[in-house]
Amino acid sequence: MEWINPYHLQVASFVLINVILGTSIYVTLSTGQLSLGNAGFMSIGAYAAALLATKYALPIPVGVAAGALLAGAAGALVGIPSLRLSGVYLAIATLGFGEVIRAVAINWESLTGGAVGIAAIPQMGRVVLAGARDLGFSPASLGLKPNQFISLTVFLILLVAAVLTVAFFLRLGRSRVGRAYAAIRLDERAAEASGIPVTYYKVLAFSQGAMVSGLAGALYAHATSFISPADFTYHRAVEILVFAVFGGSGHILGPAFGAAFLTVVPEALRAISHYRYILYGVLVVLVVIYRPQGVIDPPLLRRMRGDRAAEAA
């Protein structure tokens, strides 16, 4: 079992968290709204989960669910302005929201630990290992070292979370609500005239995006066991946006691909990683100009599926 490398698993775990974050911005974008506040919602989920675990010793799943729901509720509250804001105004307002949240996290020291953040958050891999040991299980029986077991557990939990999240919105996209989202993105006025309550769905999408960000934040807290306001800056929000822009926001697999690609490549190519963010910048400009729909778009997916069907035939 030497091939199970905790470092690789850690990178993979970050990929998965980023896939969830990419999904979060996709959901809001799928109604044509751009949110730059997802780092803020992520921090709400992270802090809620961390505090419930460290101060109230609640089980991790409860804290994660609470974090996601709280972020979703905050999203609904912030989403109300989307009743009257559109385009760049919404983007800037959500950016402002993210910064306000961060200022609160830095300044409300008694609750959030201020700029230092919260440490010693139960790490989900360790918690599972401890639970397993109580039941008389030893990772050695699988041929795993404890740290291998821990990394693997974290990876698997995140994998399940990411797959469920993507599957949720993949299915939603093919449902009545998903069609309404797409209609609003493509032509708000025609959507209205077709009987779609545009405002309701915009707030719903905004809130769902916030909830998914919160979920990612809560999982992040329990995967790294340490969070601080520095984890949830404007840069994080922009990074999430880059996933979607690069990968493509016309299909849910776009942001997921963007998140995976942009997390793995800099890790794999150390030489690049120094210039990672410079490259991000160049990539964004190039993609917006030459392939505004992003790398992955529905026609590409159709072609790939078509090719596969053709090969099968």
Partner: peptide, 29 residues
Amino acid sequence: LRSRPGASNLASLISTIGVSILLENAAHR
């Protein structure tokens, strides 16, 4: 972006964000 029909003003918002990432990190280097 201007010469492309149908490019929204979100597209230019995003492309200038790209430039800002580039410049901020170039300054860092």
